[in-house]
């Protein structure tokens, strides 16, 4: 039976409407998850009576991609500070962006906000700073002795990450000498806060870690 015998000739192109209306487009957008991925965490003495905390996210940003990089408003960054050695946070610092501004809350007691879920410590002391746009001088927000920053920076991390991957994957047995810094010439989104030691225990040792929490 020939198609023209069926008289369906014009009918068949019908299906092409369906092309436009269905099937292919449902291909889901790429699974996300990078904006909450912590690339690095630093804690060190800045001014002699202060400690600096740094949380970096969104690694391997090229200079071209950096102007468009932004903090995700649904990601809360939480610095945890344990002052009595039980690996349970006693103090927290929260950082959360909104409309181009990074809001820092604390350091404040972790009461009610320990563990894996919680709310923004919005009732505690706030230090705010305009998120520094790429290409601008760093905006620094202060509140008493606290200083804060948020924006793109050079990624301070250095490592031959690729060679490490090859070794773990069983494709190489030794590092190269010299190695290549995978992160050379790339940027990262940084959140930095410097606080007086007196606000986080004063003396002795603290244990600290950073979390990203999403809503």
């Amino acid at each position: 039976m020939k198609k023209n015998k069926l008289g369906l000739l014009t009918a068949f192109l019908l299906a092409f409407g369906v092309i436009f209306m269905a099937a292919d487009h449902i291909e889901a957008p790429a699974v996300q998850g990078t904006s909450a991925d912590i690339t690095d965490f630093y804690a060190f003495e800045g001014d002699s009576d202060k400690i600096v905390f740094v949380a970096n996210t969104q690694g391997l940003l090229s200079p071209a991609a950096s102007p468009d990089a932004s903090f995700d408003e649904n990601v809360l960054t939480e610095f945890n500070i344990d002052t009595d050695g039980d690996a349970v946070e006693d103090l927290i610092i929260h950082a959360i962006p909104r409309d181009g501004v990074m809001y820092f809350f604390g350091p404040t007691a972790a009461t009610g906000n320990t563990g894996l879920s919680g709310t923004v410590a919005a009732n505690s002391d706030v230090t705010i700073v305009d998120i520094t746009p790429y290409g601008s001088t760093a905006n620094i927000g202060t509140n008493g002795d606290i200083s804060v920053f948020a924006g793109p920076r050079d990624d301070p991390f250095f490592m031959d990450f690729a060679r490490y991957g090859e070794i773990i994957g069983g494709m190489a047995t030794a590092f190269n000498d010299p190695g290549a810094d995978t992160f050379a010439g790339t940027n990262v989104m940084s959140i930095v806060i410097e606080v007086p030691k007196s606000m986080i225990g004063g003396t002795g040792n603290i244990n600290t870690w950073v979390e990203t929490k999403t809503r």
Binding site: G33, I38, D40, L116, V120, E211, K213
Partner: peptide
């Protein structure tokens, strides 16, 4: 809103 841990690092 309630925020839940996505990632952490020490």
């Amino acid at each position: 809103g309630t925020f839940t841990t996505a990632d952490q690092m020490g």
